[in-house]
């Protein structure tokens, strides 16, 4: 209980420092925010161009793909807002800063997550605004199920995202430099979540569902809310509501791997 209170206090402090840093480097913050807009804007523009030239992709229209993108964006933004530091584990490891976390009395992963930087919920706000617009634009029926499950799905998707980052970060205990791997994994996540998973071959669908469950970040939830008749693996439509559970399961596996790596961690000799 005392430890929980200490963690809560540290976490509050973490957000206070983040906000103060952001306020201090205002121009820098604005430029990165502009990039966030351009990043999502160009992705959506490319989808729009393609789906104006070709009216549908495997039975998906631009309106539906805009919604598909919206669910991913929401989950991804939750991850970037609350777990972004997990992606920086390799940096901490090869700069030797990681050792410092090991001698402090709080959980190591918690300390990683609460390393102050310039995190600000700008992308999350953008994602919420975009998601509302995309929901309206795609004509998805908003009911109680939608309102209850969307936040849970976003959280579950974020846990999938964070779980992948945690696994790649744990690999840094052995290989130290995993920058390229990290970059490629996030590129692949981006590409595989942009289009309906049903366009891929069966083996890739299986991989995206059970090994790297990116399909649960947005494809399965989107097919459920859009009432799409298809389903990549013949799963019942309600599979789309399993995302929170899948996220929890996936992050648990990643955490076990992290604990395993932590026991064997030897430092880079700083």
């Amino acid at each position: 209980m005392k430890r929980l209170r200490a963690m809560a206090r540290a976490y509050r402090e973490y957000w206070r420092i983040n906000v103060l840093t952001t306020l201090e480097y205002r121009e820098n913050f604005l430029m990165w925010f502009a990039f966030t807009i351009v990043y999502h804007g160009t992705a959506l523009a490319a989808l729009w161009v393609v789906l104006t030239a070709f009216p549908s992709m495997n039975g998906w229209t631009f309106r539906e793909m805009a919604f598909l993108y919206g669910i991913w964006m929401l989950a991804h933004a939750v991850n970037n807002t609350f777990f972004s530091e997990v992606g920086n584990i390799p940096d901490h490891v090869h700069e030797g800063e990681f050792d410092r976390l090991l001698v402090r009395p709080l959980d190591t992963l918690f300390q990683v997550i609460a390393t102050p930087g310039q995190t600000f919920p700008d992308e999350l706000i953008l994602a919420v605004v975009y998601f509302c617009a995309a929901t309206w634009y795609s004509g998805v029926h908003v009911d109680a199920t939608f309102l209850i499950f969307v936040p849970l799905i976003a959280l579950g998707g974020a846990l999938i995202d964070a779980g992948i980052n945690l696994m790649v970060g744990t690999l840094a205990f052995w290989f130290v430099r995993v920058d390229a791997l990290h970059w490629i994994v996030s590129q692949l996540e981006q590409e595989f979540t942009r289009y309906p998973v049903s366009i891929y071959s069966r083996s890739v669908r299986l991989l995206l569902t059970f090994a790297f469950p990116f399909a649960f970040m947005n494809y399965f939830p989107a097919t459920f809310f859009l009432h799409k008749p298809e389903n990549a693996l013949g799963l019942p439509p309600a599979a789309g509501l399993l995302t929170p559970l899948i996220g929890l399961a996936f992050v648990t596996v990643a955490y076990a791997f992290w604990r395993f790596g932590l026991k064997r961690y030897q430092g880079t000799g700083h």
Binding site: F54, S56, N58, L181, L188
Partner: peptide, 24 residues
């Protein structure tokens, strides 16, 4: 890794264009 990733990226681009051309 950057060369190897070409493999996956080519697979994705092929799949995407094939899917688009198949139904339009």
């Amino acid at each position: 890794t950057s060369v190897a990733s070409v493999l996956i990226r080519v697979y994705i681009l092929r799949t995407v264009w094939v899917a688009l051309y198949a139904h339009n």
